[in-house]
Design a protein around this nucleic acid. Sequence first.
DNA 1: TTTAGGG
DNA 2: CCCTAAA
Length: 689
Amino acid sequence: MVMKKSLGNRTIGFQVPIIPRAPRSARRGQQKKRADGNYICAIELLASLAGKLLQESESSSASNNASEENDHLAICKDVIKQERQDVDKPLKAECIEQASCEESNFASEHALENNEQKFSLRQSQSQHDALLDSTSTFSGSAKSEKDTNLKPAICKNEIRYGMSGNSAGAIPGFGPSFGLNVEKPGKGDVDLANRLKDSVENSSKYPAVTNIGNQIQKPLCGNPRRVASFPRCRNNTNIGSRDGDENFPRFNKFSNKIKAFRHTQRIGDRRIRKLLTSKYWRAAPKLKDCETSKADGEMKPFTHKRRTFYKRERYYGDCLYKRRKLLDRSSIVTFDGVFSGESNSSSPQKNMNSDRNGSIAMMHGESGAPSSVFGSQASSHAKDSHVKFSIKSFRIPELFIDVPETATVGSLKRTVVEAVSAILGSGLHVGILLRGKKIRDDNRTLLQTGISCKESLDNLGFTLEPNLQTVNSTIASEDVPLTVPYDMPELLTSSPENYISDPGVSDVPSDPPPLTNSSNDVDTNPESISLHSDVSSDIKMSDSRALVPVPAMPLEPLAIVPVNQKNKRSELSQRRIRRPFSVSEVEALVEAVEELGTGRWRDVKLRAFENADHRTYVDLKDKWKTLVHTASIAPQQRRGEPVPQELLDRVMAAHAYWSQHQAKQQGKHQPGTLKITNEQADRMAIEGM
DNA sequence: TTTAGGG
DNA sequence: CCCTAAA
C-alpha cells in the first residue's frame, strides 16, 4: 500500500519543536552505527551528542541506554510541563550564556502548544507521538544536564546550535512557524555596519569559546554542519566544515559520517529532483550555495535579546559574511532593519493574528514605534509609517508522499524530510497572499497593495515557494519604494521604505538542510536575522524558536511526489510581473507586424523588441492577439491604457492583410507592402483617417 | 527553439 | 501571461 500524506498548503506550526530531536536511538553515542545506516542525520547527531553529554554528566553509568532514555523522556515531559506552567513568565532574562536549557525547552514547548493545532501533517497518531517523544527526549536530556557542570557548556551549545541552525536556514518555511517581525527602521542603522563587522570578526573567535565547552560542544558544532549538509548542498562551501574541521579535531569523524549521509541524501535528492523536475516542479532546484545554511539545531537563542543575538551573529559570522558577499546589497540594510527592530520587541502579543494560514500578524506603527496593538494600523500612512509583520508560520506547498506500507516510521520521516529538503534545496522565496490571492507585483508598495490596512493584515499570508533560480533579481528593488519582496527569489528585499522581510527565504535556498533547524534561514539571512532580533521580546522568542526548530527527520529514500497542481505553478514559478504594453510598444509592434506578418514573431521580436528582454516573441504574439481583439471590440469595453484608434486600425488592417495572405509566407514581404483591404479602407475612411 | 492556440 | 502541442 501506499501511504499518502498530504501536507497541503497548510501551515505547519509547530514542527519546529520537533525538529530538534533526534531519535533517541541516536542519542547515546551510537553514532557510529548510524553512520552506517545512512541515516545519519543532523538530528541524530545532535541526539547523539546530547546523549554523550548525558552520559558524561550522569556519570558514565552507561549501562542500559534504553531505560535511561525512557527516563529522560519522562523527565523531559515533566520538565516541559513544569515549564509550561512557568511559561508565562517572560523569557526576558538575558541568559545568553546561561540561557537555560529550560528556556529552550520552554520555547519549544511553547511552540508546540501554540502550534499543535496547526500541525497539518496528518500523521498517524503514533508518528506524531513519536515525534513528540523524540523532541521531548532531546530537550529532556538537555534539561537533565542543566544541573551538572556541563550545563553551561550545554547551554552554550544549544545556543550555538541554534544559531548555526539558523544559518542553515532553512526550512523555516517548512515548519515554519516562526514569528517574525519586520519593521523598517529607518534609523539607527548607523551602527549596523559596525556591528556587523564586529560580529564577523568575532565569529572567528567564537569557535574558541565553543571549544571551551569541551567535547560535547564540538560535536554540536559539527552537527550543525551536518545538518546543513543534509540538504543536499553540494557546493557546500561549507563554511562549517572549514571552521569546524580545523577547530575541532573530532569533527572529522562526524564529517565522514556526514559525507556518507550526504551521499545517501543526494541519491534521494536525485529522485526527488527528478520528480520535482517534472512539470510541476520545474523550478526546482539548483542548490545554490549551501554553505550558509549549515547549521541547524534548535534555535533557542533566538530571542534572547540582543546579547544573544549578537552572539549568534558571531557564530554565524562566517556565514553571514559570506552571505553578505553573495547577497550583498540589501543585506546590510536588512540588518539595519533588524537591529532597529530590536526596539520593537515590545509586546509579545504583537503577533497574534494569524490568518488562516496561521501565519502572520501585522502591526502598524509609526516609525518603529511598537504598536502594541495588532491592528493598530496604519492609521496614517505617513511617510514613516511602518508595518510590522509577525509571521508565525508559512504556508508550504502541498506534498504527497508515497511510501510502502512496509516502510518504517523513520523512513517516512526521512521521506518527508527529503521532500521538504528537495523543495528547500531549490531555494525558496516568499509569496504573499492577500485574501488568498497572491500578490505578485513586487514593485507595489504596501500601501498600494493594501497590505497596510488592518483588514488586509488579517488576510495576509506568506507562503514559501520553491525558488526559481531564475532569480528575477528584481531584488534590488532599490528603486522601488515599498516593496514586497514577494517576487524575489532569493533575497528578501528590503525595500527602502518598508521592509518586509521574509524569513528564510533567501537562505533557504542555499541550504536546505532538511533537518533542521529552522532557524537557519532566518539567521542566515541577514534579513532574517534582523527579523529575529526584532523578535527579541519574550513571547516572540518563543515563537521564533518554534520557527526554528524545524523538523529533523532523517531521510530515507522514499518517493515523495509533489503533486499539487494547484500549487504547482504558484509555488514553482512565479508568474512574471505584468507589464502592460505602452503605446509606443504597441506602435512598434504594429509596425513590425505590418512588415513581417503575423507568423514571424521571432523576427518581430528581433526587429522591434530586441532590447526588451521582458518581451518575448510569445509575448508579442499574445499582445498582437489582444490587440486584434481590442480593435474588434467597442472602445468602452477596452481596458487599460487606451491604444490610439489609429494603431488599432492598423492592427486590423495588418491582421486582415496577413490573414488573407495566408500570411506567413515568410520572406516575401517588403516593408510597406502591406495592403489595405477595401474593408479596411472603408473603416479607415469612417474613422476619418 | 518557434509557432500557434487555448487557458 | 501561462502552458503546451507541434513542428
